[in-house]
Amino acid sequence: MAKKEHTFEGICRDIVQKQFAPVYILMGEEPYFMDKITDLLLENVLTEEEKDFNLTILYGADSDAAKVLNAARRFPMMSEYQLVVVREAQMIRDIELLTNYVKKPLEKTVLVVNYKYKTLDRRKTLASAADANGILFDCKKIPDYKMAGFISTMMQMRQISIDQKSTQMLADYLGNDLTRLNKELEKLILLMPSTGTKRITPELIEQNIGISKEFNNYELLRAIVNKEVLKANRIIQYFEKNPKNNPIQVTLTVLFNYFSNLLICYYSKDRSEYGLMNALGMRNAFQVKDYLTGMRHYPAMKVFNLITDIRLTDARSKGVDNSSAPDGELLKELLYKILH
Rank of each mutant, 00 (worst) to 15 (best):
F259R: 05
K108C: 09
R73T: 14
L334A: 10
K140W: 13
A132K: 15
Q82K: 10
T253K: 09
V102I: 06
L120F: 06
G196C: 07
Y81V: 07
E29C: 01
I310C: 13
Y101F: 15
M157W: 10
K146I: 05
V84P: 11
R296A: 09
I162F: 04
E29H: 06
G175Y: 03
Y274L: 08
G275E: 07
E273R: 04
E29G: 06
L120S: 04
T201K: 02
I264D: 00
Q19C: 07
Q249M: 12
I37M: 06
E186I: 00
S152C: 09
V84C: 11
I25G: 00
L181Q: 05
V254R: 09
T7C: 09
Y274D: 07
I209S: 08
D321N: 13
T197P: 08
E107P: 00
I338H: 03
A65V: 06
D121C: 07
A66P: 03
V102E: 04
Q287F: 15
I151V: 08
R87G: 01
A61N: 06
F75P: 00
L252S: 11
A127P: 14
R74G: 08
E184Q: 11
Y117F: 14
L136W: 13
A285P: 11
Y101T: 04
S260H: 12
R158A: 15
A171T: 00
A21Q: 15
K118P: 04
T293V: 11
K165D: 11
L41M: 11
D121F: 02
H6E: 14
I151M: 07
R311Y: 14
Y336T: 07
K108P: 02
V113T: 00
D177Y: 01
L97P: 00
N257Y: 13
C265R: 02
D62W: 05
P143V: 04
H297I: 10
D327Y: 02
S194H: 00
P105W: 03
K213Q: 13
T195S: 07
T109V: 05
L312C: 00
M77I: 15
P326C: 06
S166L: 05
I95A: 03
S324I: 05
I264A: 08
T47W: 10
S152Y: 09
A21W: 01
L58A: 02
A171V: 01
P31L: 10
C12S: 12
L339T: 03
P326V: 01
Q159H: 14
T308I: 14
E329M: 11
I310M: 11
K337M: 09
K140H: 12
K302Y: 14
D64H: 03
L46R: 06
E49F: 03
L46D: 04
K67S: 13
I224T: 00
M27A: 12
F304K: 15
E219I: 04
D177S: 01
I310E: 07
F20A: 01
T125V: 07
G134Q: 07
Y24T: 08
K3N: 15
Y274I: 06
D290L: 05
A325Q: 08
E29T: 12
M147Y: 11
Q17M: 13
L306H: 05
T38N: 04
L255D: 01
L339F: 12
M77D: 03
P143D: 10
S152H: 10
K3C: 10
L170E: 02
N208I: 07
M77G: 06
V110S: 03
V254M: 14
L136A: 08
T119G: 00
Q207C: 00
